[in-house]
């Protein structure tokens, strides 16, 4: 899931022009789980903006329940049917979702209307509990975690080191912040637990950062999935459809 957190209200108000009419739009999947763009938060944002004198023409969180705003086919349908009148009455849409949600709204509204981000997308995370979401994967395009017991050093080490900890770790805590676990200490403990400490001796080559670069695409054509970076295919996978 994409973790998000609302931007400060003053920053959002700063995006809006004098007298700009705005519709507040949430996302019922990730942003709802992060409590940054679910039904209660979207309604509250509409109210808080109104109280500050912003012309809010309405708010909504497209269904069906639990659907992601970034599912373009659904969001487009919502704008064509249920929200048909929204585009006529507003100057812009404030999106309480990640940047993918913002872009989906641009696509769904054929790019005719202003779109503002109401949240900062902060990371892709595991929903450990309803109150705790943590980053364990950086979407780097080249997974190496079989060598690290399934724990990603890119996500868990502040420096993203691939060949073991820096010299700053102390009592299993990170040099950068002594309240945080050293990622390599976690990897060490994990490999010890599964009897695979020998993996720590393996030399990890520098990463292929072309797979981590932007823009990246995934295409699904017939019997093949392809991962693209710029015009290059970085990886292909057979698909049974």
């Amino acid at each position: 899931m994409h973790a998000t957190i609302q931007k400060p209200l003053e920053e959002i108000i700063g995006y809006l022009g004098e007298g700009e009419k705005v519709f507040v739009l949430g996302c019922d999947n990730c942003a709802a789980k992060c409590r940054s763009g679910g039904v209660p938060e979207t309604e509250a944002m509409a109210r808080r903006l109104s109280e500050k004198g912003v012309k809010v023409v309405g708010w909504g969180v497209p269904g069906p329940k639990g659907v992601s705003l970034c599912k373009l086919s659904n969001t487009r349908k919502v704008f064509q049917e249920e929200y048909r009148d929204v585009l006529a009455k507003t100057d812009s849409i404030l999106v309480l979702a990640c940047g993918l949600g913002v872009h989906t709204v641009i696509d769904a509204t054929s790019g005719e209307i202003g779109v503002h981000p109401g949240c900062d997308a902060i990371f892709g995370g595991e929903m450990v509990t309803d109150e705790f979401i943590a980053e364990y994967c950086r979407d780097c395009g080249e997974c190496i975690i079989d060598y690290t017991g399934g724990l990603c050093p890119l996500a868990l080490c502040a420096k993203g080191l691939l060949n073991g900890p820096c010299g700053g770790a102390q009592n299993g805590k990170c040099e950068v912040d002594r309240t945080q676990d050293c990622g390599w200490h976690l990897i060490y403990e994990r490999l010890r637990a599964i009897g695979r400490l020998e993996l720590l001796y393996r030399y990890q080559e520098p990463k292929n950062y072309a797979k981590y670069g932007a823009p990246r695409r995934l295409t699904l054509n017939g019997d093949q999935a392809s991962f693209h970076f710029l015009g290059r295919v970085m990886n292909r996978q057979p698909v049974k459809i």
């Binding site: 993203g160 073991g164 030399y203 950062y209």
Partner: peptide, 12 residues
């Protein structure tokens, strides 16, 4: 923070 290489990779 760059860390494109780590210290082991730099030695290599």
């Amino acid at each position: 923070a760059v860390f494109d290489l780590d210290s082991v990779q730099l030695l290599k």
